[in-house]
Structure formats: structure tokens, C-alpha cells
Measured scan of single mutants.
Amino acid sequence: RELRDAFREFDTNGDGRISVGELRAALKALLGERLSQREVDEILQDVDLNGDGLVDFEEFVRMMS
């Protein structure tokens, strides 16, 4: 339940997936600093298991585990 709530916080447009822009904004909020595009792309590449360029809830749960 906590992970579902956190996912909703990251998924600002409510489409059920976290985009690169949403991921960048969430990481900035969490870390208090802006990451480079390359750093965000590397994180997305590690987390995006199905290669669609987005983070779905299952991928998010794995990222947070």
C-alpha cells in the first residue's frame, strides 16, 4: 500500500506509468538536487525491464526493493 501511494506521487499525470520527466522531478524532490539527463537515463535503463521507456508499477516495486 505504501509503495502504491509512492507510485501515485511519482506518476503525476495518473496514467499508471512514470515517464522520464516524472522520474526526473521525483528524484529531484527526493534528493534535493537535479540529476543530469544522463544520470536519469541510466536509472531508467536499469529500472525499465520491458524497454518501453516508462516505469510501470511492477518495475517501480522492484526499483524500491
Rank of each mutant, 00 (worst) to 15 (best):
residue 1 R to F: 12
residue 1 R to L: 04
residue 1 R to T: 11
residue 2 E to Y: 04
residue 2 E to T: 09
residue 2 E to W: 03
residue 2 E to R: 08
residue 2 E to A: 02
residue 3 L to I: 09
residue 3 L to E: 04
residue 3 L to F: 08
residue 3 L to Q: 12
residue 3 L to R: 01
residue 4 R to A: 04
residue 4 R to Y: 02
residue 4 R to G: 05
residue 4 R to N: 10
residue 5 D to T: 13
residue 5 D to Y: 02
residue 5 D to N: 10
residue 5 D to Q: 11
residue 6 A to C: 14
residue 6 A to Q: 12
residue 6 A to N: 13
residue 6 A to R: 14
residue 7 F to K: 00
residue 7 F to P: 00
residue 7 F to S: 01
residue 9 E to I: 08
residue 9 E to V: 10
residue 9 E to K: 15
residue 9 E to F: 04
residue 9 E to G: 11
residue 10 F to N: 06
residue 10 F to I: 10
residue 10 F to M: 03
residue 10 F to K: 07
residue 10 F to V: 10
residue 11 D to R: 00
residue 11 D to A: 01
residue 11 D to Q: 03
residue 12 T to Q: 07
residue 12 T to W: 02
residue 12 T to H: 13
residue 12 T to N: 12
residue 12 T to F: 02
residue 12 T to R: 06
residue 12 T to P: 01
residue 12 T to G: 10
residue 13 N to F: 00
residue 13 N to Y: 00
residue 13 N to Q: 00
residue 13 N to K: 01
residue 13 N to T: 03
residue 14 G to W: 01
residue 15 D to V: 04
residue 16 G to R: 03
residue 16 G to M: 03
residue 16 G to L: 01
residue 17 R to W: 07
residue 17 R to L: 13
residue 17 R to M: 08
residue 17 R to N: 07
residue 18 I to K: 01
residue 18 I to Y: 01
residue 18 I to N: 00
residue 18 I to R: 00
residue 19 S to Y: 00
residue 19 S to M: 04
residue 20 V to Q: 11
residue 20 V to N: 14
residue 20 V to Y: 13
residue 20 V to T: 07
residue 20 V to R: 02
residue 20 V to C: 13
residue 20 V to L: 14
residue 21 G to H: 04
residue 21 G to A: 12
residue 21 G to M: 09
residue 22 E to D: 02
residue 22 E to W: 00
residue 22 E to T: 02
residue 23 L to T: 11
residue 23 L to M: 12
residue 25 A to S: 14
residue 25 A to V: 10
residue 25 A to N: 08
residue 25 A to H: 11
residue 25 A to Q: 09
residue 25 A to I: 01
residue 25 A to T: 10
residue 26 A to K: 01
residue 26 A to E: 00
residue 26 A to N: 04
residue 26 A to D: 03
residue 27 L to D: 02
residue 27 L to I: 14
residue 27 L to E: 04
residue 27 L to K: 11
residue 28 K to E: 12
residue 28 K to M: 10
residue 28 K to C: 11
residue 28 K to D: 14
residue 28 K to T: 12
residue 28 K to R: 08
residue 29 A to D: 14
residue 29 A to P: 02
residue 30 L to G: 10
residue 30 L to W: 05
residue 30 L to F: 06
residue 31 L to E: 14
residue 31 L to R: 10
residue 32 G to M: 01
residue 32 G to A: 09
residue 32 G to P: 10
residue 33 E to F: 08
residue 33 E to M: 10
residue 34 R to N: 13
residue 35 L to V: 11
residue 35 L to G: 14
residue 36 S to M: 09
residue 36 S to K: 13
residue 36 S to F: 09
residue 36 S to N: 06
residue 36 S to R: 11
residue 38 R to A: 12
residue 38 R to V: 11
residue 38 R to G: 12
residue 38 R to Q: 05
residue 38 R to I: 13
residue 38 R to F: 08
residue 40 V to F: 09
residue 40 V to E: 15
residue 40 V to K: 10
residue 40 V to W: 13
residue 40 V to H: 13
residue 40 V to P: 10
residue 41 D to A: 07
residue 41 D to L: 04
residue 41 D to T: 08
residue 42 E to P: 04
residue 42 E to F: 04
residue 42 E to G: 09
residue 43 I to M: 11
residue 43 I to Y: 03
residue 43 I to P: 10
residue 44 L to E: 08
residue 44 L to W: 02
residue 44 L to I: 14
residue 44 L to T: 12
residue 44 L to M: 05
residue 45 Q to A: 09
residue 45 Q to F: 04
residue 46 D to L: 04
residue 46 D to M: 03
residue 46 D to F: 04
residue 46 D to R: 02
residue 47 V to E: 07
residue 47 V to G: 04
residue 47 V to P: 03
residue 48 D to G: 02
residue 48 D to H: 15
residue 49 L to S: 15
residue 50 N to E: 06
residue 50 N to G: 14
residue 50 N to A: 10
residue 51 G to P: 15
residue 51 G to L: 13
residue 51 G to R: 09
residue 52 D to R: 07
residue 52 D to C: 08
residue 52 D to L: 08
residue 52 D to H: 10
residue 53 G to T: 08
residue 54 L to R: 04
residue 54 L to H: 04
residue 54 L to E: 09
residue 55 V to Q: 03
residue 55 V to C: 11
residue 55 V to F: 13
residue 55 V to R: 00
residue 56 D to G: 10
residue 56 D to K: 08
residue 56 D to P: 12
residue 56 D to F: 00
residue 56 D to Y: 06
residue 58 E to L: 11
residue 58 E to H: 11
residue 59 E to P: 08
residue 59 E to T: 14
residue 59 E to S: 09
residue 59 E to D: 03
residue 60 F to H: 00
residue 60 F to Y: 08
residue 60 F to A: 02
residue 60 F to C: 06
residue 60 F to S: 04
residue 60 F to L: 05
residue 60 F to G: 04
residue 61 V to L: 11
residue 61 V to E: 12
residue 61 V to I: 07
residue 61 V to S: 15
residue 62 R to W: 08
residue 62 R to K: 10
residue 62 R to A: 10
residue 62 R to E: 04
residue 62 R to I: 05
residue 62 R to V: 09
residue 62 R to P: 03
residue 63 M to A: 10
residue 63 M to H: 13
residue 63 M to D: 04
residue 64 M to G: 12
residue 64 M to T: 12
residue 64 M to Q: 10
residue 64 M to K: 09
residue 64 M to F: 14
residue 64 M to I: 11
residue 64 M to A: 15
residue 64 M to D: 05
